[in-house]
């Protein structure tokens, strides 16, 4: 398993979004070196990210949906950044949550913001720099 050096993590309470996202990510990720992890429960995501980092796998970025039950994406990002200051976070969200997204950005807690629904090219444009910078 030593060949697995990197990982990306997707968190969304909607499994179908994860499915879509996963498919799209698989198009631009070299899966021989990169793990793509999916979580519908933010708490599970928190635990597993810790696990990955413990395994010294480089988590390239975390894509988080804003609107989730139990914990919002903003809360999740705050918690992640508390522990892993350099973790790159990308927020997926509808227009409605623009204000809390903005406040996250102002606090430098957010690398990118992708508006739902997203365009594939746009998604790739946003993600590519984050990927290439690693490999």
């Amino acid at each position: 398993m030593s060949d697995m050096k990197c990982a990306v993590v997707c968190v969304d309470d909607d499994p179908y979004i994860l499915q879509m996202l996963g498919f799209q990510l698989s198009k631009i990720m070299d899966q021989s070196h990169t793990l793509i992890e999916y979580f519908t429960d933010p708490r599970q995501a928190l635990e597993n990210i810790d696990l990955l980092i413990d395994e010294r796998i480089d988590v390239m970025f975390v894509m988080v949906d804003y609107q989730m039950p139990k914990m919002t994406g903003a809360e999740l990002i705050r918690k992640l950044k508390e522990k892993h200051q350099y973790l790159k976070c990308i927020m997926l969200s509808g227009q409605a949550n623009r204000s809390s997204v903005d406040s996250l950005k102002e606090e430098n807690l957010l690398e990118e913001f992708i508006e739902k629904p997203w365009d594939e090219d746009e998604l790739f444009d946003t993600l590519r720099p984050l990927i290439t910078s690693r490999t």
């Binding site: 499994p15 994860l18 499915q19 996963g22 899966q31 990169t34 793990l35 992890e37 999916y38 597993n48």
Partner: peptide, 10 residues
């Protein structure tokens, strides 16, 4: 299911 995590797949 399409969204099986990488760890699991591994």
């Amino acid at each position: 299911e399409m969204y099986v995590g990488g760890l699991q797949m591994r």
